[in-house]
Simulated assay, not measured.
Amino acid sequence: MTLTASNSNVKWYPVYTHPRAEKKAYAALVEKGVEAYLPLNRRLKLWSDRKKWVEEPLIKSYLFVRIAASEQGAVLMTRGIARFIYFSGKVAAMPDRQIDDLKLLMASSLELEVTEEDLQPGEKIQIKAGPLKGIIGEIIAYRSQKQLLLRLENLGCSIIVNVAASLINRL
C-alpha cells in the first residue's frame, strides 16, 4: 500500500522514533510505501576485542518523512515511530531545500558531528565553494578557522562542519 500522495501537498516532516529504533522504523515506513530519509553516519566503533565500521543515525531518534498532512496518522501507526516534532504548537514541516542540504552534507566526505546544545541564533551564511557549495545555514560558533557550527532551520539541532571560514559568504 503506497501512502505518499501524488498532489503538491506533500512536505517533509521530522519524526521522533523510539530510542535506537531509527533503522527499523525507516524500514517499516519504506515497506508501507512512505518516502522517508534516514541520514546515516559511518563511524569506526572500538570494542575490547575488535574494531568495526557501523552506520549510525546522524541525529539520534530522528528521521524524515515526505507525506501529505492527511497521512500523518498512518505514519504514527508505524512500528518504532513515537511522534511528530512540533514547533509553536504545530507539526513542523521542513522545506525540500533543507532535506536536499542535509543529503548534500551526508554525501560529502566531511566529518560531521551533531550537537543538541541550546544555541542562540547568529549570522546567516552560504557556503560558496567545495562539496557543500550552496548550503545556507546560520553560524552558531566558530570552533576554529576551519570548523563552523551551523544550524539548519526547523531541524532542532546543529551540525559541526569542517569548512574554511574563507569559503563562506555572509547573507
Results as ranks from 00 to 15, higher is better:
E117K: 00
I85A: 03
A141V: 01
A5C: 14
L119E: 02
V34W: 04
A141P: 02
A129F: 06
E117G: 02
C157G: 00
G130V: 06
L152N: 02
G156S: 10
M106N: 07
W47I: 05
L152I: 12
S6Y: 09
G89Y: 01
M94W: 04
N41I: 11
D101F: 15
K146T: 14
L76T: 05
A74D: 14
S108Q: 11
S61E: 13
I139L: 12
Y86C: 07
L167H: 09
I136H: 06
V114M: 03
S70F: 08
W53I: 12
G137D: 06
E138G: 08
I81Q: 11
I67Q: 02
E117F: 01
E22T: 03
V114K: 01
F87D: 07
P121E: 05
A68N: 14
E116G: 02
R66E: 01
T4L: 10
K133D: 09
G122K: 05
W12F: 07
Y13A: 06
V91N: 05
A28M: 03
L76F: 04
L40V: 14
D49N: 15
N169L: 12
L76H: 04
A164S: 15
L104G: 06
T17G: 02
F84C: 03
N41M: 10
G80C: 09
R50L: 03
E138W: 04
A21Q: 14
P39H: 04
I135W: 00
K60A: 09
A69Q: 13
E71Q: 15
Q147N: 10
Y13R: 12
W53D: 07
Q147S: 10
K124R: 13
H18F: 13
I168W: 07
H18M: 13
P39L: 06
V114F: 00
D118T: 06
V30Q: 14
E111W: 07
H18L: 15
S109L: 11
M1Q: 06
A141D: 04
V91S: 05
I135D: 01
W53H: 11
A69M: 11
T4P: 06
Q145D: 12
I140W: 01
R79N: 09
L105T: 00
P57W: 04
Q126G: 00
I139F: 02
K124I: 10
E35K: 03
Y62V: 06
N162V: 11
G130Y: 04
Q72V: 02
V10Q: 08
A82E: 07
K51T: 01
K24F: 09
G156P: 08
R20K: 15
K103G: 08
A165Q: 12
R97H: 05
L149S: 08
T115H: 00
L44C: 12
S70R: 12
L29K: 02
V161K: 10
L112W: 07
V161E: 08
I81S: 11
L110K: 13
L148Q: 03
R83K: 15
W47F: 13
P121I: 05
V10I: 13
K23W: 05
P131E: 07
R83M: 12
L46Q: 14
K24H: 12
V15N: 03
S48V: 14
I159C: 03
L150P: 04
A36G: 10
I99M: 13
N162A: 14
M77K: 15
I168D: 05
A68T: 07
D49A: 11
E153V: 04
Q120T: 03
A36Y: 11
F87Q: 14
S88Q: 15
G33L: 12
M77S: 14
Y26H: 04
A74H: 10
R151W: 01
T115S: 07
